[in-house]
Simulated scan of single mutants.
Amino acid sequence: MQSVPLIDISPLTSNDKDAYLSVAKKIDHACREMGFFYITGHGISSTQMKNMFDLAQRFFAQPETIKHKILIANSSNHRGWGTTGSEQLDPTQPQDWKETFDMALDIHPEHPMAKACPQLYGPNQYGTLEGFAQQMNQHYGLLMVVAKRLLKAMAIALKQPDDFFTQYFDDHISVLRLLHYPPRPTNSDISAATKAAGAHTDYGCITLLAQDDIGGLEVCNAQDQWIAAPPIKDSIVVNIGDLMQRWTNDQYRSTAHRVASPPSHTHRYSMPFFVEPRFDTQVRCIDSCLKPGESAKYDMVTSGDWIMSRFDATYAYRTENP
């Protein structure tokens, strides 16, 4: 059965043009065939990754009364802690069995971007865990460097200027998320059909995912078969999101994926980084993605409008109290 490709992207930081173009070609192929691939050679150390997973465990181990003080439902710009069951990624299935923490660019409410789009820009809610805000922001910056490297390679593969995508990331709305998948309680009324995360596609351009060694990530390939994307040491999983699929007129696939519930008495942690351009970015079909006589499959949409429409469809708190 088809497996998720593994690509060493270290040549993207070299001066060897042939090696660079070879990697860009591999990325392009993976984006078209599966919409998912692993990367190594990304430059983020295994020590940094371990420190982040340790941080996630410490954050989620806090008492609920402490986490509740930074409840995402009380944030006007979708930042903070999300309770177990607050997300329903697959509308045909029960709510997901996980808890979350979301952060993005941390800016003052009076900042021009926050005034222009207060639903997506503004301050983060960190809580009081020592060193948490600093470590989260450091990792956020490291991931954005990798993301821009990948976006540049994709632009080149699509026969566009190097900065075709990265030009929209000066005031981006990218989100770093911590995820905790706790064991499902025994002898409860929680449906056996409940997934840790239901089948869904991601909303933005690309996602960079770090996962622990528990496993459970599953990807739907072009033949509609669910295949495992198990942990690979020191790798990051990359997948295409909806905005990139729209930009490329379906040439790059925004692939459905899900997370199976972890084994009994097992806690699973992961960290997706959702790479999303500034809120007013107009996403319309790239000319080089149109075949002769073909027309665009999607109308133009702004990044912010698309992301907010997906939030409203996924999070109950956004529609329960309009």
Rank of each mutant, 00 (worst) to 15 (best):
S3A: 12
S10E: 09
N15K: 12
D16L: 00
D16M: 01
K25V: 03
E33M: 13
F37A: 02
H42P: 08
G43P: 04
I44M: 01
T47D: 15
F53E: 14
L55S: 05
A56Y: 00
A56Q: 13
R58A: 01
A61C: 10
I72P: 08
A73C: 09
H78G: 01
R79D: 12
T83Q: 14
T84S: 03
T84W: 02
G85C: 09
S86Y: 13
T92K: 13
P94F: 12
K98T: 04
E99W: 05
P118M: 03
P118D: 05
L120V: 03
P123T: 06
L129Q: 02
M136L: 07
N137P: 01
H139K: 01
H139W: 10
Y140L: 15
Y140H: 09
G141Q: 09
V145I: 11
V146W: 00
K148Q: 10
A153I: 13
D163A: 14
F169P: 08
Y181T: 10
Y181F: 11
P182V: 02
P183I: 06
N187V: 08
S191M: 10
T201E: 13
Y203C: 00
G216M: 03
N221M: 08
Q225S: 05
W226N: 11
W226H: 07
S235M: 07
V238F: 01
G241W: 03
M244H: 07
Q245C: 07
T248N: 03
H257K: 10
R258W: 08
A260W: 00
R278W: 02
T281S: 14
T281K: 06
R284T: 15
E294Q: 15
M308S: 01
S309D: 13
R310D: 08
